[in-house]
Design a protein around this nucleic acid. Structure first.
Length: 728
RNA sequence: GCUGGUGUGGCGGAACUGGCAGACGCGCCGGACUCAAAAUCCGGUGGCCGCAAGGCCGUGUGGGUUCGAUUCCCUCCACCAGCACCA
């Protein structure tokens, strides 16, 4: 074989791998150490992009390396097959979601196979198959029995574009995570929730197991931040002139309570109406309140908004100092966090300081810095928020901050007006979706028996194949009478089936355990115990909170039900960087941009090789350089893996992405660089087959170069993986 | 603002545990082949000075530790990402 014919070489070896089953993982093999290597499963929509391909290439390099080092490697692949885009395609094009999804899966599988990734294809799973989602349902029923799954009426995030409920995690700055320009609305609905807050402390504390290189620090930081644990105290202030009414505040700095010059409550506080009732001149206040409640929708405006507020005309009594403080409504107090009310201590809180400056509330210093000049209220330019020692705080004066907090919290409790409390930002996980293409929630509503679980022997509750999908109004399943109208499993009387389906993050919360035993007659079995916990997981940073937090939670529930015996599912996590690409554009008179494909553009350089300008090949006129951006269809800078392989072969593509930069950082795609890698591979090929006649005359080309060349490649891979802090 | 991260040629980047900075690739320059171009192949390519041999400078900034620092410590600066009025 003289020429480097990538297509022929790769086809030959891929066929042989397939025939001999060399990537088959051996269950329960006790003779070798096991290694479970997994890349996050893809959502098969449209065509595969280079970002997928980078993810899988990194994982494949590790899997192959481990295999060669004698490990029994599990490296599977499957499909995150439920989800909204399938349904939207159905609405738009009249294709059934299943047909659309399976078509995409076939295309993804074809490209992945062509890449020659070392998957054990015998373990492939697809989350939209009843064989898989029946276990979502089965486990949901177990969670229902344990009180982990529960139903409550609650304010939900409603996306008018998706026509469904979103989890908190799917709301980004008040906008839908799928529709950047669609504001999420608030609605009251009966929803199913999973009690992830019950595990908040454990999820937080167990991060210790993941520190020290197992998980990227930033992912841990994001999860910590998301859980948002905060220790403090809750203190009750009685409201004057309104019998029986009191307001509670949450604070992490109860030691500053002698410096409180007001009590601030959120415009959405549940007791606001009661508070304002009967206040002289109350009509004006109602107007102001309305205005403030309406304003508080847009998150991005909120963040930059000026401090606003108004005095309610009411006073409350500070239970420590017995001082009267005015009650204000303030726009920066969050109704959803803590108690929806705070004490305003201008001297020791930045926001309160700003608020006090604007509305001329008194500033009272109650904490002095441990050293340096003592603070003077009339000279302060900003709040002092550090720890120090208490002053002007009655019998607590002189105590260091931690001691003051401890003593005052204890006293609040013994005197009956407060107690120590821990709050979290984390909310329970709402899983109800008013959509068709998801796992049906397996419960039945009976007028007589209430909520009745579907008996285990009637699982799975299958999705009816034909349902009208319009994208409007109620859940599509609710329009199918055959699905909805059932007999109550308890009394046999007429009943209605739940028509909501589960959030697709349910599917991805445990799929990695099913790869271990895809044909098991139970949710998991002893093979899961053999392979889990996973040794190395690889995926995008966008899943730092959503998927990874849910999966950690789900695993703990499985543990508490005796299904598995470990806490953390993923021992090591790696988040790969994005693949970027250059982009070019030209603006027309109206300022509209036309984006050029890189192939349509020619880059100009100066004599030193620095890029100076670019021209369009079609007319020779200049185009503007848009920088290195995330690959996106709108910018015409997407590189299609399929097309690239046809030209250069999979090995070139794989070698290039490992070579383009540290795997955990973003890297720009470059056709030219990729071709350079291709030349390099071709050269190696020529050496290894002794086909050196074409390059005779070059003194440096000796057999030793082959060895050196191979060493270099090995070195590259080592360097890249080492850089990425893989444990391999 | 808080948290996490990153700064090395024209570009992507390499340098293992503190030991010849700039591997490899792109781009650029020169050459071979060609009537010519493309493709391919060969050589050169951090900056400055020098005909050359060679010399000096050089890993964001300023300092420190060390025989020796891209690497370790401190200061500052810039950029990227996530969170953000969370009391």
């Amino acid at each position: 074989m003289a020429e480097y014919d990538a297509q022929a070489i790769e086809a030959k070896w891929q066929e042989r791998w397939e025939e001999e089953g060399v990537f088959r993982a051996i269950d329960l093999d006790a003779t070798r150490p096991k290694y479970y290597m997994l890349e996050m499963l893809p959502y098969p929509s449209g065509t595969m992009h280079m970002g997928h391909m980078r993810n899988y290439t990194i994982g494949d390099a590790v899997a192959r390396y481990k295999r060669m080092r004698g490990f029994n490697v599990l490296h599977p692949m499957g499909w995150d097959a439920f989800g909204l885009p399938a349904e939207n395609a159905a609405i738009k094009n009249g294709v059934h979601p299943r047909a659309w999804t399976n078509g995409n899966i076939d295309e993804f599988r074809r490209v992945l196979r062509r890449f020659g990734f070392s998957y054990d294809w015998t373990r492939e799973i697809s989350t939209c198959e009843p064989e898989y989602y029946r276990w979502n349902q089965w486990f949901f029923l177990r969670m229902l029995e344990k009180g982990i799954a529960f139903r409550k009426k609650s304010k939900v995030n409603w996306c008018p574009a998706c026509n469904t409920v979103l989890a908190n995690e799917q709301v980004i700055n008040g906008y839908c995570w799928r529709h950047e320009d669609v504001l999420v609305e608030s609605r009251e609905l009966e929803q199913w929730f999973l009690r992830i807050t019950q595990y908040a402390d454990e999820l937080l504390d167990d991060m210790k197991q993941l520190e020290g290189g197992g998980w990227p620090e930033r992912v841990l930081a994001m999860q910590r931040n998301w859980i948002g644990k905060s220790q403090g105290a809750r203190v009750r202030f009685d409201v004057e002139e309104v019998a029986g009414l009191s307001l509670e505040v949450f604070t992490t700095r109860v030691d500053t309570i002698y410096g409180a010059s007001a009590l601030l409550i959120a415009a959405g506080h549940p007791k606001i109406a009661e508070l304002l009732a009967g206040v002289p001149g109350g009509e004006g206040l109602q107007e102001q309140l309305k205005a403030m409640q309406q304003r508080s929708v847009k998150a991005e405006e909120l963040a930059t908004a000026e401090k606003e507020g108004f005095f309610t005309g009411r006073y409350a009594v500070n239970p420590f100092s017995a001082e009267r403080v005015p009650i204000w409504v303030a726009n920066f107090v969050l109704a959803e966090y803590g108690t929806g009310a705070v004490m305003c201590v201008p001297a020791h809180d930045e926001r309160d300081f700003e608020f006090a400056q604007k509305f001329h509330l008194p500033v009272k210093v109650v904490v002095q810095p441990p050293s340096g000049e003592p603070l003077r209220a009339d000279q302060m330019k900003e709040a002092y928020t550090e720890y120090g020692s208490s002053v002007n705080s009655g019998s607590y004066s002189g105590l260091a901050t931690p001691a003051a907090i401890e003593k005052m919290t204890a006293d609040a409790k013994s005197k009956g007006f407060g107690y120590g409390e821990t709050t979290y930002r984390l909310r329970d996980w709402g899983i109800s979706r008013q959509r068709y293409w998801g796992t049906p929630i397996p419960v039945i509503y009976c007028d007589k028996d209430g909520i009745v679980p579907v008996p285990d022997d009637q699982l799975p509750v299958k999705l009816p194949p034909d349902v009208k999908l319009t994208g409007e109004g109620q859940s599509p399943l609710a329009t199918d009478p055959d699905f909805v109208n059932v007999k109550c499993p308890k009394c046999g009387g007429p009943a209605r089936r739940e028509t909501d389906t589960m959030d697709t993050f349910v599917d991805s919360s445990w799929y990695y355990m099913r790869y271990c035993c895809p044909d098991a007659a139970t949710m998991v079995d002893k093979r899961t115990a053999y392979w889990m916990p996973m040794d190395q997981y690889i995926g995008g940073i966008e899943h730092a909170v959503l998927h990874l937090l849910y999966a950690r939670f789900w695993t703990r529930v499985m543990r508490d039900l005796g299904l598995v015996s470990f806490d953390e599912p993923f021992e090591r996590l790696f988040t790969q960087g994005m693949l970027l690409a250059h982009c070019y554009y030209r603006e027309d008179a109206s300022g509209r941009k036309r984006w050029f494909y890189p192939a349509e553009v020619e880059q100009q350089f100066d004599e030193r090789g620095a890029p100076v300008s670019a021209i369009a090949k079609e007319d020779g006129q200049p185009v503007l350089y848009g920088g290195i951006e995330k690959m996106s269809k709108s910018k015409n800078n997407v590189v299609e893996p399929g097309a690239f392989i046809e030209r250069f072969g999979a090995d070139t593509a794989r070698a290039f992405v490992m070579f383009a930069g540290p795997p955990d950082q973003s890297a720009p795609w470059s056709d030219a660089s990729a071709e350079g890698v291709h030349r390099f591979l071709r050269r190696l090929w020529s050496f290894s087959y002794g086909e050196r006649t074409r390059i005779e005359g070059a003194a440096s080309l000796e057999i030793a170069d082959l060895d050196a060349g191979l060493k270099k490649i090995r070195h590259e891979l080592h360097a890249a993986l080492h850089q990425a802090r893989f444990d391999y």
